[in-house]
């Protein structure tokens, strides 16, 4: 068992993490390349200030607490805090980052990390509940939307159990292995599923650039479908 844990903690972690990084890098590169290639100099005139201002309005999204979605919004916004902080700054993880990449990250005190983890788990469960019980949300959700929520939940739950042996009915080794494996699964899924919004959120936001349509394209489309004499 320990061998497995070592494997999951070492090569498997490194590999899946690398897959995630490369996958995300691929998304970013494709986006930047295709936008620059297609829009070229027109990018200079884009309303960058506005784009950044709008994006920043979501860091502390008080303005966006509109009636009808208040609870959902508060929960989903706040679960992101734990989703970002815990994986990066938990004491046990910091050792990992040091081993692998030789970087020193600041540490989250263990009680804060504890509460944050619990809080995140609760939030994720509530979100899951929304997907199941809200007709509105359910009507839009596909299988993957549920599966992904579970995949995100797993490392948090197993991680919490590993740190709190008292709450853990299984052996530490099993839980730890599950923790590592579910994290690996999460890493792999990130660049290929909607979780990719951790980098794509920025590219989603720049629709102002995409409104700058390509001159001549309309005529080309019409011509290719209906020939030169295309009529309205």
């Amino acid at each position: 068992m320990e061998l497995w844990i070592d494997f999951a903690r070492g090569p498997l972690f490194a590999l899946t993490f690398l897959i995630m990084l490369l996958g995300l890098a691929r998304l970013i590169i494709i986006q930047i390349y295709s936008i620059v290639a297609r829009k070229g100099r027109r990018l200079i005139n884009a309303p960058w200030k506005k784009i950044f201002r709008e994006a920043l309005s979501w860091v502390i999204p008080v303005r966006h607490l509109i009636p009808g979605t208040k609870i959902f919004s508060i929960v989903s916004f706040s679960c992101h805090i734990g989703l970002i902080l815990v994986p990066l700054f938990l004491a046990n993880h910091i050792v990992l980052w040091e081993d692998l990449f030789d970087i020193n990250l600041p540490q989250l005190s263990s009680s804060v990390a504890d509460y944050l983890t619990l809080f995140t788990i609760v939030c994720l469960f509530i979100l899951f509940g929304f997907r199941v019980f809200s007709i509105r949300l359910r009507s839009m959700s596909r299988k993957s939307d549920y599966v992904i929520l579970i995949v995100v939940l797993l490392p948090f739950i197993t991680g919490y159990m590993a740190v709190h042996p008292k709450m853990n009915p299984f052996s530490w080794n099993v839980v730890m292995l599950l923790h590592l494996l579910s994290a690996a699964l999460l890493f792999i899924l990130i660049p290929f599923t909607k979780l990719a919004h951790i980098v794509l959120f920025f590219f989603d936001r720049i629709s102002a650039i995409h409104w700058q349509l390509r001159p001549g394209a309309g005529d080309q489309v019409a011509e290719s479908l209906y020939g030169k004499e295309a009529k309205v």
């Binding site: 919004h197 989603d204 349509l213």
Partner: peptide, 13 residues
């Protein structure tokens, strides 16, 4: 036209 990158981004994320 130039819609591809935006659609790529939207349908993934």
């Amino acid at each position: 036209s130039d819609y591809k990158p935006l659609l790529d981004s939207y349908c993934t994320s």
